[in-house]
């Protein structure tokens, strides 16, 4: 083979699926963490909930579009094959997407729900029984927390799954390690966090609060550090592994993907945002004051994290397919 058969559609899908998982995870975390019985970071939680369903839906659409026979995608759902990560994954995606939708619904205010109803053409709207319309006004805020709790494992699963999809392929030594799944998970969470940083910074109606930024920064710094702790062992481990894996690593250690991997992923995607965020965080760390919020730096860092997440998937999808046993 050696010519890649999974290309940008799959890269995008892996990225978008991860992004949704990240958005949901952070949002759910923000919901779960409480202060005086209320979500500690409601704006983060709400934005996360509003955004989470869309990337994964788009990603799933791309995934179907990438099929040789897109109109046969339903065949995925008449079978369940526990040995096939893709079979597991497609069920997982459906459940996760439905859950994010429900979660989003729960985060909408009743007026917003009614407003949404008004977008429907009059003809359709008139057919909806009044009882159902009335139901829109129910307070669902209680369900937010329940759904967040239920969604944690699903979000983590989706994050991991995108990595497992690749990692479970023993034919591609570049992928065939559990570190890939973990890297994809933490990268997913990190891109979710970064997206929320961006969103909060651009939310002019409810300007971002210091506590929120601190929460997001803390989270992101942790995630990036974890990613480092995964990537470095991945490389060291690979170099110490069997020949096929060593050969596969040549893709990023002196091969076609070296530049992309080191400069764009490790450098721009992890190290630079980490340094920026640490720098912003420095006063807190040194106990000399408050977190410094520079919109420009924060935007840069978040943007780079998202870019890094994308590049990670790009490198893995293409380098992995180019690796093999010969």
């Amino acid at each position: 083979m050696r010519e890649p058969v999974w290309e940008y559609l799959i890269v995008n899908y892996l990225f978008l699926g991860g992004l949704s998982a990240g958005l949901f995870f952070v949002s759910a975390l923000a919901t779960w963490l409480q202060e005086e019985g209320r979500p500690a970071y409601p704006h983060i939680a709400r934005w996360g909930a509003l955004l989470a369903p869309w990337p994964v839906s788009l990603g799933s659409f791309l995934l179907i579009f990438d099929l040789g026979k897109p109109f046969r995608f339903w065949k995925l759902f008449i079978t369940f094959r526990w040995q096939s990560p893709m079979s597991i994954g497609s069920w997982l995606l459906v459940i996760f997407t439905l859950l994010t939708m429900a979660y989003l619904w729960a985060w909408l205010d009743p007026e917003e729900r009614t407003r949404l109803l008004n977008y429907l053409p009059a003809k359709v709207r008139q057919r909806i029984p009044a009882k159902a319309v009335k139901w829109l006004e129910h307070d669902l805020s209680f369900w937010r927390r329940e759904l967040a709790m239920a969604g944690f494992p699903l979000a983590v699963s989706v994050g991991i799954y995108t990595g497992v999809l690749l990692g479970a392929v023993q034919a591609r030594p570049f992928w065939n390690t559990n570190l890939v799944a973990q890297m994809f998970l933490f990268s997913a969470l990190s891109t979710g966090t970064a997206t929320l940083i961006l969103v909060r910074l651009f939310d002019k109606k409810r300007p971002v609060a210091l506590a929120e930024m601190r929460f997001l920064y803390t989270l992101d710094i942790c995630l990036i550090l974890i990613e480092f702790f995964i990537v470095l062992p991945y490389l060291i481990h690979g170099k110490l592994s069997v020949l096929a894996v060593q050969d596969a690593l040549a893709q990023v250690l002196g091969g076609p993907f070296t530049f992309t991997f080191w400069l764009l992923f490790l450098g721009c995607g992890l190290l630079v945002p980490l340094l920026i965020e640490l720098n912003e965080f420095k006063p807190v760390l040194l106990g000399r004051g408050q977190l410094h919020i520079s919109a420009r730096w924060a935007t840069t860092a978040a943007g780079l994290v998202i870019l890094g997440g994308y590049v990670l998937r790009y490198v893995f999808v293409f380098a992995g397919q180019a690796s093999g046993f010969r």
């Binding site: 058969v5 990438d66 026979k69 046969r72 034919a171």
Partner: peptide, 27 residues
Amino acid sequence: DDCIGCKYCIIACPYDARYHNPETHTV
């Protein structure tokens, strides 16, 4: 008739023995 053309098997074959049929779009 059951192949949806996801190409996962192409990737999963360590011997690169499979291909995507450009005419039928199955493997």
